[in-house]
Computed example of a mutant assay.
Amino acid sequence: MRVLTGAAPNENITDADLAELYAPPAGRPWLRVGMVSTVDGSATGDDARTASINNAADHRVFSTLRGLADVIIVGAGTAKAEKYAPTDVPIVLVSRKAQVPEALQGAPAGSVYLATCSRSDGLPAAREILGDEHILELGSHRVDLPQLKATLAERGWMSQLCEGGPHLSRDMVFQGCVDEVAATTVPRLVAGAYPRTTEGAPINVPLELTMLLEDSGTLFGRWALGG
């Protein structure tokens, strides 16, 4: 892995170097969206999971991003499709319908939270599964994502990593929550009708490249959101 831009040249990047290169700024809430896609823009392969396009270099950066995070934010549908399990930091599921994937329903207390809507029909079941203290009611008909970011920061979770899916990533950007996109581009073409890293109504948000790494053709960019 080597630095292409945004940092001092380095041809032999250690795990400690990676953590320094991706470190979020201190003293303020920082929400980073992690993305991976093929050169032709697909966020998954033919199994509808990111695992089919990941490679060893991407796993290394993915582990670094998780290691720097105080909390992981993910859509409930993505958590289900990607077969999420409890991690070393809390997972916050985002679900307008208050759905908790089965694989996370038996997670240790405090390892899984749910951000949902006060009018969701699924709230009673979610409270039964996770406990009322792990339910974040943020908005009535849709999840208020800026309020989610602020609520997590109030709990001391300043470094926030959103792992998608595509609709949540788009909504995070649209609602002005995102400080940075960490985007991996793997050197593959897959064609097909697979999802993109963001999906939903059109948005037009400028990005500024702040760092670019390369490893055997895989590119890793840090992109700051412009004004």
Rank of each mutant, 00 (worst) to 15 (best):
V92C: 00
G77D: 05
I129P: 01
L18Q: 11
G106I: 12
L136G: 00
T44V: 08
P195W: 00
P90Y: 09
I53T: 09
R155K: 13
G122C: 07
Q175F: 15
G75A: 04
V190N: 12
T50H: 12
L207I: 11
H167M: 15
K97Y: 11
P166D: 02
G45E: 10
L161S: 04
R32I: 00
A57E: 11
P29G: 07
G200F: 00
Y84W: 01
T5F: 14
A107Q: 06
R170S: 11
M1I: 09
D121C: 12
G217S: 09
Y22V: 02
T116R: 00
T5G: 13
G75C: 02
T44M: 02
A193K: 15
R196V: 05
S120M: 09
P101N: 03
V74C: 03
V112W: 03
L161W: 02
G226P: 13
P166A: 10
F62V: 06
A201D: 05
G131C: 10
V71A: 08
D17I: 07
A126V: 01
V173Q: 09
R188L: 14
Q175D: 15
C162I: 05
S120L: 10
S159K: 11
L114Y: 05
V100F: 05
D179T: 07
E180C: 06
G27Q: 14
S37P: 02
I72L: 00
T185H: 03
A79R: 01
L130G: 09
G164H: 00
L93D: 02
Y84F: 01
A109W: 13
R170P: 05
F174A: 15
